[in-house]
Amino acid sequence: MSDHALSAAQPRPRLPAIPGVAIVLVALALVFAAISPNFLSTGNLSNILVQSVILLLLAMPMTLIIMTEGLDLSMGAVLTLASLVLALTVVSTQSLVLGLAGAVGVGLAFGFVNGWLVSSLRIPPFVATLGTLGVAQGLALIVSDGQSVVGIPRFLRQVYSGETAGIPNPILIGAAFYALFHVLLYHTKFGVYIRALGGNRDALTLAGVKWQRMLVAVYMLGGAMAGVAALLLTARINAGHPTAAIGMEFDAIAAVALGGTSFERGNGWIFGTLLGVLTVGVLRNGLNLMAVPSSAQVAATGALVIVALFLDGLRSRKP
């Protein structure tokens, strides 16, 4: 049995304790602090946090979806539609609860369709959600008739601009959902099965787990979170707009990829996504302070993602 000496292989060295995204985040912050004195002011830092919350609400469920080796390209369009539904409902009924219910309902419906297309019809996630992207975008144009929905009542705006106990509301909402996702991923069966869905579906089948339902649930969670994000978005822009969040799924995917969640094998973490969201937020904010147009910021984010994917590929190709 001596020819089995190779089995004594050492466990591979662990990744360094500091994740790459944290280094990028700090480096970016230092650069911007050096260039623009305004960057490190309390007001601006709090601003970055507040502005990052909507992205965080989308990026967290996107993390879970990507961990199942999936993707949701429809998220930005669904958010737009949900925001319009919310604005229209609130304007006509003056009820925040009804508005939120409508927005989350729209999100859940799209999430269900996405999940059903992916798990039951086995359509590749990127095409399934590309199709529903078109549907959501079309519905957004139809319900709004191409116009902005205005006349948002003050109580709705207050959700974004108000404070509770001296802390801006969005930060509280973001923190609450971060805690929720942390618990979901690390302390529930659902979290365990998400890693298994991406890592080894056969293991789930052999363990007798009905994973198809789990997969639908993951996409529905994504839709529901788009509905919640719609609340903040509508309050922030003080209107419903038919192209308000077009392409925002890309920022979410960018944050997830930057955060070190892999597109393969169920490797991901929610804290990395938080750092990824902050990195995108800092990048956008810093470039804003330097008066770089938002279009160039999109290109910069895109380039950052391709680099992140390349590094992800390098890491996963190592034996």
Binding site: F263, S295, A296, V298, A299, G302, V305, L309
Partner: peptide, 16 residues
């Protein structure tokens, strides 16, 4: 994914 990332790079570059 690669071409989706490229989409946004191009989009940003063009607008810029």
């Amino acid at each position: 994914i690669a071409t989706y990332g490229m989409l946004w790079v191009l989009h940003g570059l063009t607008y810029y």
